[in-house]
C-alpha cells in the first residue's frame, strides 16, 4: 500500500537508527522497577531490526506498564484501562505496514481487559503483546491483581489475597487460534532480549508474559525466584527461544520442550511448582485476522465508485 513494499528496509539503507532514536521521554518508573529493563530491551530489539521509528505504534492501556509509549520515540497510543488490544487490532486492521506493539499489565490485561485478551489471541493479528506482570496494581497503590499470590496482603485484601492466582499461561494456551505464548523474567536481559526478538519476529499475535519486579508493592513475589533459580524451569528447544551461550548455566532446571506441541505446553503451563521460562507454544500457520481485514486495501477510487453505484443499482426503482 501507498507504494511501500512490506519489506521497506531494502529501500531505506540511508538511515541508521541508534538506541537513542527509539528513546522517548525520561522514564518515570520507580528505582529498581523491572519495567526499565524491559524498555531498554525493546529499544535494543528495534535497533537490531532497524525498524523505521515512524512505522512503530506502541499501544497501551492504563497502569505502570502502560506508560511505555511515552518512553518510545515512535507513534504511541496511551488509551483506556484494559482497552489496548482492541485499539491495537484496529490500528493493524488496515495498516499492515505498521509495526504494532502492545504494553499492558496484569490488571490491564488479565482483569479489566480479560475479554480483549482472549479475543485478541484468537484474532491473531500481527503484533507483539508484552504483559508486564508484577502481580499487583502499582499505579493505584497496591490492590490485589488477578496474579497476586494467595495470602499476599494488599490494600483491598489486608488479610491476604483470598483467591488462588490466575494462570495466564493456561488461559492463553486454551484460546483457539493462539499462535505464540512465551514467558520470561525481567531480570535476565540476554534471555529477555531473545524472547522479545522472537516474539517480534513471529507473524501473528505474540503473547509474552514477563514476570516483572515491583520493588515498592510486590517485592517478595519475585525475590523468591530471583534468589533461588531452582524455582524456574528453562524451556529449551531448537525451535524455541535462543538461549545465549552461558546463560543456561543459571538454570538448574531445564527441559527440552517442543513449542509445536500444544498438549505438552499446556502440561508445562499447568505445573505451577516451577515457573517456566521460554517459548511454550508457537504455531506459525495459525490464521491471521489482519489478512482478512486488509482485503480490498488496494482498491482505487474509481473501483470504489463503481462498487457504490452497483450497490445503489440494486435499490434503484
Amino acid at each position: 500500500m501507498f507504494g511501500l513494499k512490506s519489506d521497506w528496509s531494502l529501500d531505506t539503507n540511508d538511515r541508521y537508527f541508534t538506541l537513542d532514536d527509539y528513546a522517548g521521554a525520561e522514564p518515570r518508573w520507580c528505582t529498581g522497577c523491572g519495567d526499565l529493563g524491559i524498555l531498554a530491551t525493546i529499544h535494543r530489539v528495534c535497533r537490531e531490526a532497524q525498524i523505521l521509528p515512524e512505522k512503530i505504534v506502541s499501544v497501551s492501556g492504563i497502569g505502570c506498564s502502560s506508560r511505555l509509549p511515552h518512553y518510545m520515540h515512535t507513534y504511541g497510543f496511551h488509551g483506556l484501562h484494559g482497552r489496548a488490544l482492541p485499539v491495537a487490532c484496529g490500528v493493524k486492521s488496515r495498516r499492515p505496514d505498521l509495526d504494532v506493539w502492545v504494553a499492558t499489565g496484569d490488571g490491564d490485561c488479565f482483569s479489566i481487559g480479560a475479554a480483549h485478551w482472549v479475543h485478541a489471541l484468537r484474532y491473531n493479528m500481527d503484533m507483539t503483546i508484552l504483559v508486564f506482570d508484577n502481580g499487583i496494581y502499582g499505579l493505584t497503590k497496591k490492590q490485589t491483581s488477578p496474579t497476586t499470590p494467595e495470602e499476599y496482603q494488599t490494600n483491598t485484601h489486608p488479610g491476604g489475597a483470598i483467591l488462588p492466582p490466575l494462570n495466564p499461561l493456561t488461559v492463553s494456551l486454551g484460546v483457539t487460534n493462539v499462535s505464540f505464548v512465551a514467558q520470561m523474567v525481567d531480570w535476565n536481559p540476554p534471555l529477555l532480549y531473545e524472547t522479545i526478538k522472537a516474539a517480534h519476529d513471529h507473524k501473528g499475535t505474540s503473547f509474552v508474559r514477563i514476570i516483572q519486579r515491583c520493588p515498592v508493592y510486590m517485592e517478595q513475589m519475585n525475590l523468591d525466584m530471583m534468589d533461588d533459580p531452582a524455582n524456574l524451569l528453562l524451556l529449551k528447544h531448537e525451535n524455541g527461544i535462543l538461549v545465549p551461550e552461558g546463560v543456561d548455566r543459571l538454570f538448574e532446571n531445564q527441559i527440552e520442550h517442543d513449542p509445536m506441541n500444544l498438549a505438552n505446553a499446556m502440561a508445562v503451563a499447568a505445573d505451577e511448582s516451577k515457573m517456566p521460562v521460554g517459548l511454550l507454544y508457537r504455531n506459525p500457520d495459525a490464521l491471521c485476522y489482519d489478512e482478512l481485514s486488509n482485503a480490498g486495501l488496494d482498491m482505487i477510487d474509481e473501483e470504489k465508485l463503481a462498487g457504490v453505484n452497483d450497490a445503489l443499482d440494486s435499490f434503484t426503482i
Binding site: V57, V59, F77, G79, L80, R83, L85, P86, V87, A88, C89, G90, V91, K92, S93, R94, R95, L98, H116
Partner: peptide, 9 residues
C-alpha cells in the same frame, strides 16, 4: 476501540 485504532492509523 477497534474503530478508534483504525481512525488513529
Amino acid at each position: 476501540g477497534f474503530a478508534i485504532g483504525a481512525s488513529y492509523a
